[in-house]
Protein backbone atom coordinates (compact mmCIF):
# COMPACT_ATOMS: atom_id res chain seq x y z
CA UNK A 1 0.00 0.00 0.00
CA UNK A 2 2.09 2.89 -1.21
CA UNK A 3 0.21 6.19 -1.12
CA UNK A 4 2.56 7.71 -3.68
CA UNK A 5 1.85 5.23 -6.42
CA UNK A 6 -1.84 4.43 -5.88
CA UNK A 7 -4.07 6.98 -7.65
CA UNK A 8 -6.15 9.47 -5.68
CA UNK A 9 -9.02 8.87 -8.11
CA UNK A 10 -9.72 5.71 -10.09
CA UNK A 11 -12.81 5.57 -12.27
CA UNK A 12 -13.74 2.38 -14.09
CA UNK A 13 -16.31 1.76 -16.84
CA UNK A 14 -18.49 4.61 -15.68
CA UNK A 15 -21.86 4.98 -17.36
CA UNK A 16 -24.87 7.21 -16.85
CA UNK A 17 -28.14 7.02 -18.73
CA UNK A 18 -31.18 9.27 -18.46
CA UNK A 19 -33.94 7.16 -19.97
CA UNK A 20 -32.71 6.62 -23.50
CA UNK A 21 -30.08 9.39 -23.32
CA UNK A 22 -26.59 8.06 -22.67
CA UNK A 23 -24.86 10.99 -20.94
CA UNK A 24 -21.70 9.06 -20.04
CA UNK A 25 -20.29 5.70 -21.10
CA UNK A 26 -17.13 3.59 -20.87
CA UNK A 27 -15.21 6.17 -18.86
CA UNK A 28 -12.08 4.79 -17.23
CA UNK A 29 -9.61 7.27 -15.81
CA UNK A 30 -6.95 7.13 -13.13
CA UNK A 31 -5.57 10.32 -11.60
CA UNK A 32 -2.40 10.43 -9.46
CA UNK A 33 -2.29 12.83 -6.52
CA UNK A 34 -1.17 16.39 -7.27
CA UNK A 35 -1.91 16.13 -10.97
CA UNK A 36 -3.91 18.95 -12.57
CA UNK A 37 -6.36 17.59 -15.12
CA UNK A 38 -8.21 19.67 -17.68
CA UNK A 39 -11.49 18.42 -19.13
CA UNK A 40 -12.58 19.64 -22.55
CA UNK A 41 -15.50 18.87 -24.83
CA UNK A 42 -18.41 20.56 -26.58
CA UNK A 43 -21.69 21.33 -24.87
CA UNK A 44 -23.58 18.17 -24.01
CA UNK A 45 -20.45 16.01 -24.22
CA UNK A 46 -20.99 14.75 -20.65
CA UNK A 47 -18.43 16.79 -18.69
CA UNK A 48 -20.84 17.97 -16.00
CA UNK A 49 -22.37 14.48 -15.77
CA UNK A 50 -18.87 13.10 -15.12
CA UNK A 51 -18.23 15.68 -12.37
CA UNK A 52 -21.69 15.04 -10.91
CA UNK A 53 -21.06 11.31 -10.62
CA UNK A 54 -17.70 11.68 -8.90
CA UNK A 55 -19.11 14.20 -6.41
CA UNK A 56 -22.26 12.21 -5.68
CA UNK A 57 -24.72 14.61 -7.28
CA UNK A 58 -25.71 11.77 -9.62
CA UNK A 59 -25.45 8.04 -8.99
CA UNK A 60 -23.75 6.21 -11.89
CA UNK A 61 -25.84 3.67 -13.78
CA UNK A 62 -22.80 1.42 -14.07
CA UNK A 63 -19.12 1.33 -13.13
CA UNK A 64 -17.12 2.21 -10.05
CA UNK A 65 -15.38 5.21 -8.50
CA UNK A 66 -12.51 4.77 -6.07
CA UNK A 67 -11.19 7.69 -4.05
CA UNK A 68 -7.88 6.99 -2.31
CA UNK A 69 -8.61 3.31 -2.84
CA UNK A 70 -12.03 3.51 -1.26
CA UNK A 71 -15.21 2.73 -3.16
CA UNK A 72 -17.42 5.82 -3.18
CA UNK A 73 -19.74 4.79 -6.02
CA UNK A 74 -23.27 6.05 -5.39
CA UNK A 75 -22.57 7.67 -2.01
CA UNK A 76 -24.55 10.87 -1.34
CA UNK A 77 -22.74 14.13 -2.06
CA UNK A 78 -22.45 15.11 1.61
CA UNK A 79 -20.70 11.82 2.46
CA UNK A 80 -18.29 12.25 -0.45
CA UNK A 81 -17.60 15.83 0.65
CA UNK A 82 -16.78 14.63 4.15
CA UNK A 83 -14.39 12.03 2.70
CA UNK A 84 -12.36 14.77 1.00
CA UNK A 85 -13.78 15.59 -2.44
CA UNK A 86 -15.13 19.10 -2.99
CA UNK A 87 -16.46 20.87 -6.01
CA UNK A 88 -17.47 24.19 -7.43
CA UNK A 89 -20.31 24.69 -9.88
CA UNK A 90 -20.80 25.98 -13.39
CA UNK A 91 -23.20 28.49 -11.80
CA UNK A 92 -21.55 29.62 -8.54
CA UNK A 93 -23.33 28.22 -5.48
CA UNK A 94 -23.03 30.65 -2.59
CA UNK A 95 -25.43 32.09 0.00
CA UNK A 96 -26.63 35.28 -1.73
CA UNK A 97 -28.31 37.00 1.22
CA UNK A 98 -25.19 36.69 3.37
CA UNK A 99 -21.99 38.70 3.18
CA UNK A 100 -18.78 37.24 1.78
CA UNK A 101 -17.22 36.79 5.20
CA UNK A 102 -20.42 35.21 6.56
CA UNK A 103 -20.38 32.78 3.66
CA UNK A 104 -16.78 31.92 4.38
CA UNK A 105 -17.26 31.60 8.13
CA UNK A 106 -20.16 29.21 7.86
CA UNK A 107 -18.15 27.11 5.39
CA UNK A 108 -15.20 26.97 7.80
CA UNK A 109 -17.40 26.25 10.80
CA UNK A 110 -19.27 23.46 9.01
CA UNK A 111 -15.95 21.84 8.16
CA UNK A 112 -15.24 21.57 11.89
CA UNK A 113 -18.57 20.10 12.94
CA UNK A 114 -19.86 18.25 9.90
CA UNK A 115 -18.98 14.70 11.00
CA UNK A 116 -22.19 14.34 13.02
CA UNK A 117 -25.36 16.18 13.97
CA UNK A 118 -23.99 16.36 17.49
CA UNK A 119 -20.85 17.96 16.09
CA UNK A 120 -22.92 20.58 14.29
CA UNK A 121 -24.84 21.35 17.47
CA UNK A 122 -21.81 21.54 19.72
CA UNK A 123 -19.48 23.47 17.40
CA UNK A 124 -19.91 27.23 17.83
CA UNK A 125 -20.11 29.33 14.67
CA UNK A 126 -18.03 32.21 15.94
CA UNK A 127 -14.67 31.20 17.27
CA UNK A 128 -11.38 33.05 16.87
CA UNK A 129 -10.08 30.10 14.82
CA UNK A 130 -12.93 30.06 12.29
CA UNK A 131 -12.77 33.85 12.02
CA UNK A 132 -9.04 33.71 11.34
CA UNK A 133 -9.42 30.81 8.93
CA UNK A 134 -12.19 32.58 7.00
CA UNK A 135 -10.19 35.79 6.69
CA UNK A 136 -7.14 33.83 5.58
CA UNK A 137 -9.21 32.11 2.89
CA UNK A 138 -10.45 35.46 1.56
CA UNK A 139 -6.84 36.64 1.41
CA UNK A 140 -5.69 33.46 -0.32
CA UNK A 141 -8.37 33.82 -3.02
CA UNK A 142 -7.81 37.58 -3.19
CA UNK A 143 -11.39 38.58 -2.43
CA UNK A 144 -10.76 40.17 0.96
CA UNK A 145 -11.80 43.60 -0.27
CA UNK A 146 -15.33 42.27 -0.85
CA UNK A 147 -15.40 40.96 2.73
CA UNK A 148 -18.55 42.79 3.83
CA UNK A 149 -20.44 42.84 0.53
CA UNK A 150 -23.55 40.73 0.17
CA UNK A 151 -22.84 37.74 -2.06
CA UNK A 152 -25.81 38.60 -4.29
CA UNK A 153 -24.13 41.87 -5.30
CA UNK A 154 -20.76 40.37 -6.26
CA UNK A 155 -19.29 40.52 -9.76
CA UNK A 156 -19.39 37.11 -11.44
CA UNK A 157 -15.66 36.45 -11.05
CA UNK A 158 -15.68 37.19 -7.33
CA UNK A 159 -18.69 34.98 -6.81
CA UNK A 160 -16.89 32.14 -8.59
CA UNK A 161 -13.85 32.63 -6.37
CA UNK A 162 -16.02 32.63 -3.26
CA UNK A 163 -17.68 29.41 -4.42
CA UNK A 164 -14.26 27.79 -4.81
CA UNK A 165 -12.95 29.21 -1.54
CA UNK A 166 -15.94 27.71 0.27
CA UNK A 167 -15.39 24.36 -1.42
CA UNK A 168 -11.79 24.42 -0.21
CA UNK A 169 -12.75 25.27 3.40
CA UNK A 170 -13.17 21.62 4.33
CA UNK A 171 -9.56 20.87 3.33
CA UNK A 172 -10.43 18.55 0.44
CA UNK A 173 -7.70 16.47 -1.19
CA UNK A 174 -9.50 16.40 -4.53
CA UNK A 175 -11.33 19.35 -6.06
CA UNK A 176 -13.49 19.38 -9.17
CA UNK A 177 -14.15 22.71 -10.82
CA UNK A 178 -17.00 22.76 -13.34
CA UNK A 179 -16.23 25.59 -15.75
CA UNK A 180 -14.63 27.97 -13.25
CA UNK A 181 -14.31 30.62 -15.95
CA UNK A 182 -17.75 30.41 -17.53
CA UNK A 183 -19.48 33.76 -17.61
CA UNK A 184 -16.15 35.56 -17.13
CA UNK A 185 -14.76 37.91 -19.76
CA UNK A 186 -11.75 36.72 -21.77
CA UNK A 187 -9.50 39.37 -20.16
CA UNK A 188 -10.33 38.21 -16.63
CA UNK A 189 -10.18 34.46 -17.20
CA UNK A 190 -6.43 34.08 -16.90
CA UNK A 191 -6.21 36.19 -13.78
CA UNK A 192 -8.94 34.19 -12.11
CA UNK A 193 -7.35 30.85 -12.98
CA UNK A 194 -3.98 32.15 -11.83
CA UNK A 195 -5.44 32.97 -8.40
CA UNK A 196 -7.29 29.67 -8.12
CA UNK A 197 -4.44 27.45 -9.23
CA UNK A 198 -1.82 29.06 -7.06
CA UNK A 199 -4.17 28.83 -4.05
CA UNK A 200 -4.77 25.16 -4.72
CA UNK A 201 -1.03 24.53 -5.16
CA UNK A 202 -0.39 26.02 -1.68
CA UNK A 203 -2.99 23.67 -0.24
CA UNK A 204 -1.62 20.72 -2.26
CA UNK A 205 -5.01 19.86 -3.73
CA UNK A 206 -5.45 17.64 -6.78
CA UNK A 207 -7.62 19.40 -9.35
CA UNK A 208 -9.89 18.39 -12.21
CA UNK A 209 -11.27 21.39 -14.06
CA UNK A 210 -13.69 21.72 -16.95
CA UNK A 211 -12.66 24.44 -19.40
CA UNK A 212 -13.55 25.39 -22.95
CA UNK A 213 -10.62 27.68 -23.62
CA UNK A 214 -7.65 25.62 -24.90
CA UNK A 215 -5.19 28.39 -24.06
CA UNK A 216 -6.19 28.14 -20.41
CA UNK A 217 -6.12 24.36 -20.46
CA UNK A 218 -2.65 24.44 -22.05
CA UNK A 219 -1.42 26.90 -19.45
CA UNK A 220 -2.69 25.13 -16.31
CA UNK A 221 -3.30 21.43 -17.01
CA UNK A 222 -0.71 18.65 -16.82
CA UNK A 223 -3.08 16.37 -18.66
CA UNK A 224 -6.25 16.71 -20.70
CA UNK A 225 -9.31 14.51 -21.00
CA UNK A 226 -11.28 15.23 -24.18
CA UNK A 227 -14.96 14.29 -23.94
CA UNK A 228 -17.15 13.54 -26.90
CA UNK A 229 -20.63 12.02 -26.85
CA UNK A 230 -20.36 10.87 -23.23
CA UNK A 231 -16.94 9.31 -23.37
CA UNK A 232 -13.23 10.15 -23.27
CA UNK A 233 -11.79 10.18 -26.79
CA UNK A 234 -8.35 11.47 -25.85
CA UNK A 235 -6.30 11.41 -22.65
CA UNK A 236 -2.89 13.02 -23.14
CA UNK A 237 -0.80 16.11 -22.55
CA UNK A 238 -2.26 19.46 -23.64
CA UNK A 239 0.17 19.65 -26.56
CA UNK A 240 -0.75 16.19 -27.79
CA UNK A 241 -4.47 16.88 -27.49
CA UNK A 242 -4.13 20.06 -29.53
CA UNK A 243 -2.37 18.12 -32.24
CA UNK A 244 -4.80 15.18 -32.10
CA UNK A 245 -6.70 15.07 -35.43
CA UNK A 246 -9.71 13.29 -33.91
CA UNK A 247 -10.06 16.01 -31.29
CA UNK A 248 -9.70 18.66 -33.97
CA UNK A 249 -12.52 17.23 -36.07
CA UNK A 250 -14.89 16.21 -33.26
CA UNK A 251 -14.36 19.11 -30.86
CA UNK A 252 -13.36 21.68 -33.44
CA UNK A 253 -15.70 24.27 -31.98
CA UNK A 254 -14.02 24.01 -28.59
CA UNK A 255 -12.74 27.55 -28.45
CA UNK A 256 -15.82 29.15 -29.89
CA UNK A 257 -18.16 27.29 -27.52
CA UNK A 258 -16.78 28.91 -24.41
CA UNK A 259 -19.18 31.82 -24.17
CA UNK A 260 -22.39 29.90 -24.75
CA UNK A 261 -21.92 27.29 -22.03
CA UNK A 262 -23.82 28.47 -19.02
CA UNK A 263 -26.34 25.73 -18.33
CA UNK A 264 -25.96 23.65 -15.16
Amino acid sequence: MNANTSPILAVRDLEKTFGSVVAARDISVSVPAQQTVGIIGANGAGKTTFVNMITGHLAPSKGSILFEGRDITGLPSRAITRLGISRSFQVAQVFPTMTVIENMRIASAIARGRDSMLGLMSTPLDTPETAREADAALELFQIARYRDARAATLPQGVRKLLDIAMAVAGAPRLLLLDEPTSGISIEEKFGLMEVVMSALKTRRITVLFVEHDMDIVGRFADRVLAFYDGTVIADETPEAVLANPQVQTLISGTRAHGAGAAHA
Binding site: T55, P76, Q93, A111, R114, M121
Partner: peptide, 21 residues
Amino acid sequence: SVAGSLTHPIRDNEIRVEFLG
Protein backbone atom coordinates in the same frame (compact mmCIF):
# COMPACT_ATOMS: atom_id res chain seq x y z
CA SER B 1 -23.77 26.61 17.07
CA VAL B 2 -23.20 25.69 13.45
CA ALA B 3 -26.49 23.78 13.37
CA GLY B 4 -28.32 26.78 14.80
CA SER B 5 -26.62 29.07 12.28
CA LEU B 6 -27.66 26.97 9.29
CA THR B 7 -30.76 29.06 8.76
CA HIS B 8 -30.12 31.62 6.02
CA PRO B 9 -27.82 29.14 4.27
CA ILE B 10 -30.64 26.60 4.03
CA ARG B 11 -33.10 29.25 2.88
CA ASP B 12 -30.56 30.57 0.37
CA ASN B 13 -29.04 27.49 -1.16
CA GLU B 14 -29.49 23.90 -0.05
CA ILE B 15 -27.13 22.60 -2.73
CA ARG B 16 -24.19 24.50 -1.26
CA VAL B 17 -25.03 23.22 2.22
CA GLU B 18 -25.10 19.63 0.94
CA PHE B 19 -21.77 20.11 -0.81
CA LEU B 20 -20.24 21.46 2.39
CA GLY B 21 -21.00 18.03 3.81
